[in-house]
């Protein structure tokens, strides 16, 4: 139930003074405050993960840097005892220059095929393109080509 007792003059004066007061502008926006509070709580949650990541990264770097001496595995590769191919190494002079514009490859295919067949045998011959004949028509025989209606007429007469 409300207190109906009238205010004393001193209380009325205090009331007026308080009513005249303006609320001070807060140093921090509320919304900003709530955001920062939330972020702070998340940072706290992330901190262990960050520490863990840093520690693992450091451990990985250390393990890569400090590797034991590699165990040598010997693998025997058998190579044919052949006289090295003698060919011009004119390209050796070209190799010292940086790659630039290139034209089309023009080295003779005869030389390539010849040297491949010499080195590897006739199996190194290039394979011909697959024939374009898709239906197996017989090669026309001369007799069939000439078997026109007029020809048949002459045959009727035994000619």
């Amino acid at each position: 139930m409300q207190d109906e007792t009238p205010l004393t003059p001193a209380e009325r004066e205090l009331e007026a003074a308080l009513a005249a007061l303006q609320p001070a502008v807060p140093a921090m926006d509320r919304d900003a405050l709530m955001f920062r509070a939330g972020r702070a709580s998340a940072r706290n949650r992330m901190l262990p993960w960050r520490l863990a990541t840093a520690a693992l990264a450091l451990a990985l770097t250390t393990s890569l840097a400090i590797r034991p001496e590699p165990r040598t595995v010997e693998r025997i590769v058998r190579v044919p005892a052949e006289t090295p191919r003698i060919d011009s190494m004119y390209a050796l002079a070209r190799a010292s220059f940086p790659t630039g514009e290139t034209g089309t490859a023009t080295q003779s295919s005869y030389l390539r095929v010849r040297d491949d067949v010499l080195a590897q045998g006739a199996d190194a011959l290039p394979r011909p393109p697959v024939g374009t004949v898709t239906d197996t028509e017989p090669v026309p025989e001369v007799r069939r080509v000439l078997d026109t209606p007029s020809q048949r007429r002459w045959q009727f007469f035994g000619l």
Partner: peptide, 18 residues
């Protein structure tokens, strides 16, 4: 024809060096 695969400027430079 006999040796080079390139006809560009680097081939010409190489030819000059040779």
């Amino acid at each position: 024809i006999l040796d080079s695969r390139e006809t560009g400027w680097n081939a010409r430079l190489a030819a000059a060096a040779v």
